[in-house]
């Protein structure tokens, strides 16, 4: 977990509950040996400035280029977009739903997580304003994409780590245990790991 600022502890609980080892990343060398990276919710300006200050921006771009998966949640979704780290071919609108008074939670159907909806918590959340053709939209609210996948990047506008439902993190871990070449290449999804098999098949 990127641990510069935000709710990385909640992500740790999710990952550890699924049997993963989770460690905190505050410096580039701490990325070594990891199978995947969670960029948590928090304040996107605080996290962006921290990444630049600590040389983590370039290190994370390199980590992503090596084919290892990244899960970005809320602020994490924003900092992966084209205007920030450029890991995903999409642009976010920040605070798209409004200030805290407009924050909400709701059941959300997310492609790849099976038939049961996920309880999604939106806190001053962004949505995806525009995206390229290679980006798969996994869920929408008011017809705005709020969960997308671009190769080995999984980006969501909401927080499921604040609930007891760990299916999104299980999907991310399935990406992390899939060989990099097939996870990042479109067209070969659905091979191997369990979580991936359903991606793109539901409509």
């Amino acid at each position: 977990m990127l641990a510069l600022q935000g709710d990385f502890e909640a992500h740790r609980r999710m990952l550890q509950g699924l049997g993963a080892e989770a460690s905190e990343v505050r410096a580039p060398h701490q990325l070594e040996g990891l199978d995947g990276l969670v960029i948590p919710g928090g304040e996107s300006t605080t996290i962006s400035k921290g990444m630049a200050r600590d040389g983590l921006d370039e290190a994370i771009v390199g980590f992503h280029a090596s084919g290892r998966p990244i899960l970005g949640s809320c602020a994490g979704m924003i900092v992966c977009d084209r205007e920030h780290l450029g890991l995903g071919d999409y642009l976010c609108r920040r605070n798209a739903f409004g200030r805290q008074l407009a924050s909400f939670e709701q059941d959300l159907q997310v492609e790849g997580l099976g038939p049961d909806p996920l309880r999604a918590v939106f806190i001053r959340a962004p949505w995806v304003e525009r995206h390229g053709p290679g980006v798969e939209v996994l869920a929408e609210v008011e017809r705005h994409p709020v969960a997308v996948r671009d190769g080995n990047l999984l980006a969501v506008a909401f927080h499921s780590e604040l609930t007891d439902d760990s299916r999104l993190h299980a999907l991310f871990m399935a990406l992390a245990s899939t060989p990099a070449s097939s996870a990042s290449r479109p067209g070969v999804r659905g091979e191997g790991a369990d979580g991936l098999a359903t991606l793109g098949e539901e409509s």
Binding site: D7, S103, E105, R124, H159, T163
Partner: peptide, 21 residues
């Protein structure tokens, strides 16, 4: 149905401020 101002939504913002100033 979207629900606003639940305990989880209220504490949620403070969760996002953790580790910050």
């Amino acid at each position: 149905m979207a629900e606003r101002a639940t305990f989880r939504v209220k504490t949620g913002l403070a969760e996002m401020l953790k580790g910050g100033v």
